Amino acid sequence: MRTLLNIIWFIFSGLWLALGYWAAGIIACIFIVTIPWGIASFRIGNYALWPFGREVIETRPAGVATTLGNIIWLIVAGVWLAIGHVVTSIPLFISIIGIPLGWANIKLIPVSLMPLGKKIVDSDQLMPGYRGA
């Protein structure tokens, strides 16, 4: 079932969202100081391309640098990427078959707003009963 959802997702949302994340990552990597945001953007872009069967978890308690980095990301790119998720989720929610895909879009909003200090893992690697961030 995951594979089928991922294929449908790829066609209707995943490719377009991943391109947005990758564009943000390229722009962030052009400026040497913002490479950590670029790496995070590429990581989330890959997750946005094929999300079913994977989860986002916290890597460690957020320090001051991670918090400041997330605030900068939120202002510069996070809001725009989150808007992209909302815009692509609306037509998915309108169609009955697209409701799970719309929920997947909404699920990506928190990591698009605050990507630093997060890790993407396969759902099979999680402990039983644990739900990611």
Rank of each mutant, 00 (worst) to 15 (best):
Q125E: 06
G117R: 10
V64A: 11
S112L: 08
A65H: 08
V56W: 02
G69T: 03
V111K: 04
S13W: 03
V79G: 01
E58H: 05
W80A: 15
T34S: 13
A40G: 08
F42I: 06
T66Q: 11
F10V: 01
V33H: 04
S13M: 11
F93G: 00
S41K: 12
I26G: 02
A48R: 03
I7Q: 08
S89C: 07
L49K: 09
I8N: 01
I71A: 13
W50F: 12
I32C: 05
G132S: 04
N105Q: 11
G129T: 00
I94H: 00
K119D: 11
T3C: 04
M1P: 08
V86T: 04
F52S: 00
G14L: 02
S13L: 05
G53I: 02
A82N: 13
V87H: 14
A23P: 13
A28Q: 05
A48L: 12
V79M: 15
Q125P: 00
K119Q: 09
I26W: 15
N6T: 03
T59Q: 09
L92E: 00
I72A: 02
G84E: 09
A18R: 07
I83T: 06
I72E: 03
P100N: 03
N70M: 06
A104Y: 02
T34L: 09
G129N: 11
A77N: 10
I57S: 08
K107H: 14
R131G: 03
A23K: 14
A62C: 02
W16F: 13
R2M: 11
I39L: 04
A104S: 09
G84H: 13
V121A: 06
P51G: 07
I75T: 02
T66M: 15
N6P: 03
V87P: 12
E55S: 15
T66K: 09
L108S: 07
I96Q: 05
P51V: 04
G53F: 08
G98C: 00
T34E: 05
F10R: 10
G25S: 11
L74V: 01
G14A: 12
G78Y: 12
A77R: 13
W9N: 01
F10I: 07
P51Y: 03
T34K: 05
V76Q: 04
W50E: 13
K107P: 05
I106Q: 04
L17E: 15
I8V: 06
S89F: 11
A77L: 11
Y47W: 07
L5M: 08
S41F: 03
G14K: 04
W50Q: 09
V76F: 12
G102R: 00
